[in-house]
Design a binder for these strands. Sequence first.
DNA 1: TCCCAGGTATTTT
DNA 2: AAAATACATGGG
Length: 278
Amino acid sequence: MIIKSTNINLKHIAESGQCFRMNRMDDNKYSLIAFGKYIELIQTDRDSVEITCSEEEYQLLWKDYFDMDYNYNEIVTVLIQGKDEFLKKAAEFGRGLRILKQDIFETLISFIISQRKNIPAIKSCIEQLSVKYGERKVSSTCDNKEYYTFPTPERLAGANIEELRKAGLGYRDKYILKTSQAVLRSDIDIIKLRELNSGEAVRELLNLSGVGIKVANCVSLYGLHHIESFPVDVWIGRILKDIYHNKFDLELYNGFAGIVQQYMFYYIRSQNKEDIKP
DNA sequence: TCCCAGGTATTTT
DNA sequence: AAAATACATGGG
């Protein structure tokens, strides 16, 4: 299945810190586990991507997952033609980034794990959790590739805390357990969060163990696709302080600040990472 | 070996 | 109410 788009870049998406189960296999080729499925993606040229799935599965799942109905060119153009020099560079550099529509529970648990960990360590934890508590599957389309789906709330809520910790969670083990149990008991209805606006959803999420303002905003942005949510982590915090002297005007990007945040995050980190430089 | 990582909860001023 | 501090583990 081939996707044509003037604004999709697998490398940018995979390396932008929004998802943790999309991995580079070799140049231009990535594997991805999401929604219980395994696919491989190839950047065949600047404007096209090949996915190892049927047309039907693409229409049913991946088209939405990659947010293909949204016009990212419009935002990139606004930023590149705008007056903000930093965002101009960030948008030029990150052209092809998209905000994925990820599973809400996986996003919630993943970003609880993310606190005080670097991205490789986060990925490692999530992979270990999946092997331990997910479902083993074999991809029929990708050379019988073996993979493990992300655990369900039931599986994590029923986990033994010592066993959980062996996945490298550290002190976060109790957060994962409590939050999974809260989801299972429907103390919070994570499906209904979709019906709320971003502010209301964040407020609900803050009741969960291990979820503070930053993680709540990440869940809102990446799990609920509230593209106005603007997570502030150490990197974004440094940008707001060092580049904008704490005078960054979010109102300028009302309604899509989360996407702007993603260009910022990806760009600033590229400055410090050889392997992401263009 | 040392430092720090897409922060949060708890304790202390 | 605001500010300091503890927290587990592993990647670089």
